[in-house]
Amino acid sequence: MSTETNQIKYKATDFKSAAEPRWCPGCEDYAILKAVQTAMAKIGRPTHEHAVVSGIGCSSRFPYYMSTYGFHTIHGRALPIATGLKLSNPELAVWVVTGDGDGMSIGGNHLIHALRRNSDLNILLFNNRIYGLTKGQYSPTSVKGMVNKTAPYGTIETPVDPLGLAIESGATFIAQISATYVKELVDVLIEAYNHKGTSFVHIYQNCYIYNNGAFDGFTNREIRDDNNVKVEHGKPLIFGKELNKGLVMGYGKFDIVEFEPNKIPDNIVIYDETDPVLIKMIKDLEFPDSPVPMGIIKRVEAPIFEDVVREQITMAKDKFKPDLKKLIEAGDTWEVK
């Protein structure tokens, strides 16, 4: 399929269902919905070749708003369901929509194992650092000390580090982006689709009602360029409104240096999405002292779960002719006359 004909073929609205989205006005889930539909139009495959599987949460209402195949499942379990689906029909493009609670609390175990299993799924984790659907309890990503319905005196636990979790679980594709970066989000989604293996896309998504402004410090248009660093394979790690800041190698971490715009020093690190050391260092950047990385953090190739399952079946078929009669009549038999 050439991209040229694809562009003529599909519009974002082709991936829109007739159902009216029911998210709160101002919710960033709308922006992600639009981005996914735009990405699918660009990818250029028809609606019936996509399936969107979700768990439970505001974010997980997603499939109802898509004109593709969809399965709105149960809390935390979208991943194994999607794996069963992909395993059964590897031709499908399978997308998983999950929330911070759905994917990292109740479904945390499945996330670890899905990432190391490396089925060709595209996981979109909407992180609003709160439980939206159940009306504002803390989530495993809520900032320590956050005051909310279930933590009137502030939360006690250390939040989960989504990128760290993904790295340690052996994810083969990890990206991080904010719902406010509309164009970049679309690009990341297309790259996630193109990646063969599990793609983990961590999306900062503002919950307008229960955790409004949670990401303002680094997503607000006014200041975001000084607080985000765009991560791109083969490109220098530079940021700032004037593109006058960059990351250099420090002692086990990146140091930030400033320079004159357009005069990028030689020691600015050129990012390599396959380098385990750089991957670890970029995820260790801690806001507000450091900028938040946005883009593709990791991309490596590894055998794909469903492909290997198929291969083993083919291997077995070559080795043993699948003869049911013979199987059932195998072993010691005897005749009764």
Binding site: V53, F71, P80, I81, T83, G84, L85, L92, H110, H113
Partner: peptide
């Protein structure tokens, strides 16, 4: 839970 849901995903497929 993964076992039953994976089977369910297959039945859905």
């Amino acid at each position: 839970i993964a076992a039953v849901t994976m089977a369910l995903g297959a039945a859905y497929a």
